[in-house]
């Protein structure tokens, strides 16, 4: 490796590394797709079972030109964002109440653990029956996936706030609400963002499970339907779009995180 003698050398070095990483990242996906395509063309692997990138692409362009895909994307994204927003705000409110009332937190602890350990997909059918087969039911399933873990994580973060900061506030005669709004919330902004990052994935799982169980629309529906009629192109297309949207949502949170970090010189 070249010796670094100046800042411009250093910057070059960093830039070089960045370019190398980006190229490798694209190369990996490129190699996977081309291998997949070639192997199915040469009939080494069965394109009926695994579909192929070109088939998925053709199907996708059909869905785009007919405009059908947009309603599926729209409904699933809407369900995910609704599920995410409700569970995050609800989860944070509940965690705050439990934080303010330690006795309640101790009493409810085993129930939270139980709810968290429970495989959420097991209660999804009940939620669909209670809330209906439409948007409400699916958002409900999504909430059941995200809410409990949000409460548990947020509560842990709140309890881990530097005790000296709290004593400092108390020595200035701050009340509980002031401590909450001036210390607990702001010091956990980053933690809440990382909770959101985890929750995005979970919320999608909830939506897809909900759509598998009962739906006429959405990406989960597309994948389910494709599977039932053995149209693997459709299944692959669904998965492809899903991963792109989830990735974009994740990207937005990472961007917010970066902006905040820069602002506070963290």
């Amino acid at each position: 490796m070249k010796k670094i003698n100046s800042i411009s050398d250093y910057k070059k070095q960093i830039k070089k590394e960045k370019i190398m990483i980006t190229i490798s990242q694209f190369a990996i996906i490129g190699i996977i797709f081309s291998l997949w395509e070639l192997l199915t063309r040469w009939n080494i692997i069965n394109s009926f079972l695994l579909s192929s990138p070109s088939k998925v692409f053709i199907l996708l362009s059909q869905y785009i030109s007919s405009g059908e895909i947009f309603s599926h994307v729209y409904i699933s994204t809407l369900e995910t964002i609704l599920g995410l927003t409700i569970s995050l705000s609800g989860g944070i409110v509940i965690a705050t109440l439990l934080y303010l009332c330690p006795i309640a937190s101790k009493i409810l602890d085993p129930y939270l653990v139980l709810l968290n350990a429970l495989p959420k997909s097991a209660i999804a059918p009940i939620l669909i029956i209670w809330l209906g087969t439409g948007l409400k039911g699916i958002v409900g399933v999504s909430i059941s996936f995200v809410m409990v873990i949000t409460i548990i994580n947020t509560l842990t973060y709140f309890k881990n706030v530097d005790n000296d900061l709290i004593i400092m506030m108390k020595s200035m005669k701050a009340n509980k609400l002031q401590i909450l709004f001036k210390v607990i919330f702001p010091s956990n902004l980053m933690n809440i963002l990382s909770t959101i990052k985890v929750s995005i994935g979970l919320s999608w799982v909830g939506v897809i499970v909900g759509e598998y169980l009962s739906s006429r629309q959405g990406l989960g529906y597309l994948v389910m339907y494709g599977g039932q009629v053995f149209k693997l192109d459709l299944v692959m297309m669904g998965i492809f779009i899903l991963s792109i949207i989830a990735f974009l949502m994740y990207g937005v949170v990472v961007l917010i995180e970066k902006i905040l970090k820069k602002r506070y010189q963290l």
Binding site: D162, D164, L165, I167, M168, K182, V183, P186, S187, L189, Y264, Q265, L266
Partner: peptide, 10 residues
């Protein structure tokens, strides 16, 4: 305090 307890977001 031992730590300065300054809040990094302020």
């Amino acid at each position: 305090f031992q730590k300065d307890c300054l809040m990094p977001w302020r």
